[in-house]
Amino acid sequence: MGELFSQFNILGAFWVTIQLTFFAAIGALVIGTVVAVMRVSPVPILRGFGTSYVNVFRNTPLTVIMVFTSLGLWQTLGLVLADEQSQHFFKDNNFRLAIVALAVYHASFVCESLRSGINTVQPGQAEAARSIGLTFLQNIRYVVLPQAFRGAVTPLGNTLIALIKNTTVASVIGVAEASFVMADMLDARADVLFLIFIIFAIGFVILTLPVGLLISAVSERLAVKR
């Protein structure tokens, strides 16, 4: 087993997984929040845009989005996200394209989580905000969203766990994250198939389990007291 670790860069692969998760989570949170605000805004057309975004990206397989960023955005439409002169061009470009795909896909789930968070905010809060003359955006920004985030910790956390696992899909466009390296290792060392799988599976358990425990601890502490 030690020999497997010295022969292949297993920890490096999981580091790529963590990086993908980190950047995609930030991207998804930003896009998802904007879409969620659009979906509850008083402007009907913006609501329509928000709803369409969620329906489109939630119902498209992540694999299709991932393949599209590589074959479509980059190879056909010429979108380049890294320095083309750099010797790490392919690595960097694929890595960033994968982040785009992950962020865009998970943003729709972040939006739905936030909407359920908004539902947990007591109507009196928003009414009080309106009655002191706050506009919709002020109301959302200072009163509703801060409480909605606290109420949405559990669904947001579940989305984060799904995101950690979905980073494996980046392997279809050649990002050397955990599942990509595992597939390589399985091809090279067919004699220890089970051992390799167990190593990587436990790696993912180690990544996702603390997040799950953290969510249940945090959601209880952050829940708005009524």
Partner: peptide, 18 residues
């Protein structure tokens, strides 16, 4: 708990080669 934590794609890579 195990199969909820393991990504489906990881599982597919493994079972296919298995």
């Amino acid at each position: 708990e195990f199969f909820r934590a393991v990504p489906v794609l990881l599982m597919m890579y493994f079972t296919f080669r298995l």
